[in-house]
Design a protein around this nucleic acid. Structure first.
Lengths: 371, 371
DNA sequence: CGGAGGTGTGGGAGCGCTCCCTGCCGCAAG
DNA sequence: CTTGCGGCAGGGAGCGCTCCCACACCTCCG
C-alpha cells in the first residue's frame, strides 16, 4: 500500500472520520490524483455542497465552516475543475476575443487592455484570429466555435457582414465591439468621422489643397467601419473647404506599412500635385513616408503626412497623428461585457476622443498652388 | 446609469443571476433548446455512443451510419459541448499561452504564429499576460490557473524563476518555450550568443572600439534569457577583438523604446566616447536612435546603432538589425507541443538563424579613435 | 460444424461540479 | 407550549459527453 504523508496523517486526525483523503501531489515524486471537491469535503468534515458554497463565497455557510473549508482546500491544493463547473452551470467564465491580427498596434493594445481587465475579474480570454487580407476572402466567423465555450464575445476591429453579426447575436450571449461595430450593438470606438475631419482640416489649415487619402480595404468596408467613416470625414471636410473630392486621390493601403507604401507610391506617381496625405492609420502613414523617401521626396517639405493611432513609434519617425487610447477601449469594452453578463444595463456605445499630436511630418506646402 | 465601479461590477458578477436560459433562436420560427448528442442519436436512430464515435471519426462505425449521423447532426445544428467532453476525457483541446506582453513586436508575432497554427489543428488558445516591469515584481505565474484548463503550455519570452518552471512542469502537461527557456525544456529560440557576437562583430568590423550595449531587465535575467546570452556574445566578441569589456558601457533598456531611449541617453552623457551601440532588441535600438537625436547626434555619423528582431518598422527608421522570424518560432513551438501531447518524441530544442540586415544605421566611426 | 476473431452497436457508469430541495436547530412571537 | 422562521447543512439529481463492456452477428479456418 501507499505511504501516507504527514499532512494527510494530520488530516485524518483533525477530521474524526477514519478514511484517508486521496493523495496529494507534494514536491516531486509520488504520482497521485489531484484533490477533488469531495476530498476537501471529507477533510473538512462537511458535504460537497457546503464546500462549493464556501469556496464561492455564497451565503448560508457559517464563518467557522467557511474558514475550515478554505484551510483544507488550500492544504490539499484543491483546484476546481472549470469543465465540471461549466457543465453544471452553463457558464464558462471565458470571453472569446475575435480579431484579424495581433501584431498590429491598435489590435495588440486593445487585446492587452481586454486581457488584463478580464483576468482581473476572473475571466479567461480565448483568442481567435481571422486574417483579413486584401484579396483573399477571409475565413468566415463561425459562431458554433464559440457556442458552449464563451460567456461573451468581444469583436476587435473585425469587419463583419450582417450575417456574421446576426449569427453572433443568435448565440444569445453578450456581444461587444471595439474599434468598429454595427450601430445597434454595444461598441467602444472613436468618432471616426470627426477624426477624419480633424486630420483633414489640419492639412487644409496648413494650406494644402491637393490632399490624398490612404484608407483601408474597400471590399471589407461596411458602413460602420472606421476607414469608411474616416474617409467620410475627409470628404466632408474637403467639401466644407470648398474642395471637390476627387476619387482619384483616395487609395487603398490595406492598413499596413507595406500597403500604405505601395498605394502612396501609386498615388504620388499618378498625381505629382499631391502635397499632403491623410492616412487612416499610423502604419499606413509610415508606409506613405517610406513612399515619399522612395521617390526622393522630403517629408514634410514635399509631402505632409498625417496618420491616426498614436503608434508607439510615431515619435521616432516624427509622424503627426490623431492619437487614440486603444488599451482603454479594450479595457472598457471588457467591462461593458461584464456588465451585460451580469444583466446590468449598459450604454449603447462609448466614444473616445482623439488628440492631434504634431510631430513634424506636416507643414505648409512648399509653394503656393500654381494651377 | 453608467456609474458602476469595478468592485460593483465584480459583486454583481459573482452573484449569479439565475439559471442560464437554455433556448436558442433558430432562423425565424421555432425556438428550441440546443440540440444535444441524444437528440442527434434519436434522430439518426442510433445510440449516443455511436453518435460520439461517428462524429469523432472513430472506427467501428459503418459508413452508412456515419453519414446518417453527420447529416442529422448538421440538420439539427448540433455543436458538442467542450466542457462535457473535457470533463469526460480530462483533455481540453486548449493551450495556455503565457506572455508578458502582446503589444511588442516579438511577442505579437509569436502569438499570431501560435494561434494560427493551433487553431488549424483544432486547438484553442487561452491568453495569459504577466506584465514584466523594470521595478515592480510581476505577478507570479500560478500553475493552478492552468490546471484542468489546458492540455499544454506555451511560455513566450517570459523569464521564469526555477520555482515557476518546476510548478509548470509539475502540472504534468506538455510545456514548451519560445524565445527563451531552461536548458532542459523544449524551446524554440535563437542562438542568442551568436547573435550577440555577430551584431558586435559588425560594429567592430566597421572600426568601432568603444561599443555600448543596451540590454534587458537585469534582475529578471536568468542564465537562459536572451538578453543575458546576447550580452554574453557581446562580451565574448569584444574579448576576441582584444577589447576589455567595460561594465560601464552596458545599460538596461527594459526592452522597450522608452527604456532604450533613457538608458542610451544616460550612457552617452556618461561616456561621450561611445561611437556605437548594440541594442538587444529593435525597440530598444529605436530608443537609442531617439536618444541620439535628443543629443543632436547623427546616426550613423556620430553613433552607429544595431538591434535585434527585424521589426516591421525597422526599415522605415533605417535600422540595421539581426532579423529573426518570430512568427515561425510561435508556429513551430506549437507544433512541438502538439507532438508532445500525442506522445511523439520531439527535439530538445529548435534554433533559428538571424540575418544581418544593413539599413544604414551603422557606419565607420567618424574619426579614428583618439585616446 | 464449432470456436475464434472481427465488426458494428447499445447500455450505462462515470467525469466533478452546481443547485434544488429537504431537514435540523434555535429562537422569537403568538 | 405551539408555530413560524431564518440560518446552516446534507442528499442527490443532473449537466452532456466519453469509454468500457457486453452482445449480436458474420466470416474464416481447422
Amino acid at each position: 500500500m501507499w505511504e501516507r504523508s504527514l499532512p494527510q496523517a494530520l488530516a485524518s486526525i483533525s477530521s474524526q472520520s477514519g478514511p484517508a483523503p486521496r493523495t496529494v501531489v507534494e514536491n516531486g515524486a509520488e504520482s497521485a490524483s489531484v484533490a477533488g471537491i469531495d476530498d476537501v469535503a471529507q477533510a473538512a468534515g462537511v458535504s460537497t455542497a457546503t464546500v462549493s458554497r464556501a469556496l464561492r463565497g455564497l451565503p448560508n455557510v457559517s464563518e467557522a465552516t467557511r474558514l475550515r473549508v478554505l484551510a483544507e482546500a488550500a492544504r490539499l491544493g484543491y483546484v476546481p475543475s472549470p469543465s465540471a463547473a461549466s457543465l453544471a452551470t452553463g457558464r464558462t467564465r471565458t470571453i472569446g476575443l475575435l480579431t484579424p491580427w495581433v501584431n498590429r498596434w491598435f489590435f495588440s493594445n486593445v487585446i492587452e487592455g481586454a486581457e488584463r481587465t478580464l483576468r482581473g475579474l476572473g475571466y479567461d480570454v480565448l483568442l481567435y484570429t481571422f486574417e483579413v487580407k486584401q484579396s483573399a476572402t477571409r475565413r468566415r466567423v463561425d459562431p458554433n466555435v464559440l457556442r458552449h465555450r464563451v460567456d461573451g464575445t468581444l469583436v476587435v476591429g473585425l469587419p463583419l457582414d450582417d450575417d456574421e453579426v446576426r449569427s453572433l447575436v443568435d448565440l444569445g450571449r453578450p456581444l461587444a465591439f471595439v474599434g468598429s461595430g454595427p450601430a445597434d450593438q454595444v461598441t467602444a470606438r472613436l468618432d471616426d468621422v470627426s477624426t477624419g475631419r480633424e486630420a483633414t482640416r489640419h492639412l487644409l489649415d496648413l494650406g494644402h489643397r491637393c490632399v490624398g487619402h490612404v484608407t483601408g480595404v474597400p471590399d471589407l468596408v461596411s458602413s460602420w467601419s472606421p476607414p469608411a467613416e474616416r474617409s467620410h470625414g475627409y470628404t466632408l471636410e474637403l467639401a466644407d473647404a470648398g474642395i471637390e473630392p476627387d476619387p482619384e486621390l483616395v487609395v487603398n493601403g490595406d492598413f499596413d506599412v507595406q500597403g500604405g507604401r505601395e498605394s502612396t507610391l501609386g498615388l504620388l506617381r499618378r498625381r505629382p500635385d499631391v502635397t499632403a496625405v491623410f492616412a487612416a492609420s499610423d502604419e499606413m502613414a509610415m508606409g506613405a513616408m517610406l513612399a515619399a523617401r522612395d521617390l526622393g521626396l522630403d517629408v514634410p517639405g514635399d509631402l505632409s503626412v498625417i496618420g491616426v493611432d498614436g503608434h508607439d513609434l510615431a515619435e521616432l519617425v516624427g509622424l503627426t497623428t490623431m492619437a487614440q487610447d486603444a488599451y482603454q477601449q479594450g479595457a472598457d469594452a471588457s467591462l461593458l461585457l461584464m456588465e451585460m453578463i451580469s444583466g446590468a444595463p449598459v450604454p449603447a456605445s462609448l466614444t473616445y476622443p482623439t488628440e492631434l499630436v504634431d510631430r513634424g511630418s506636416t507643414a505648409p506646402p512648399r509653394a503656393p498652388e500654381a494651377a
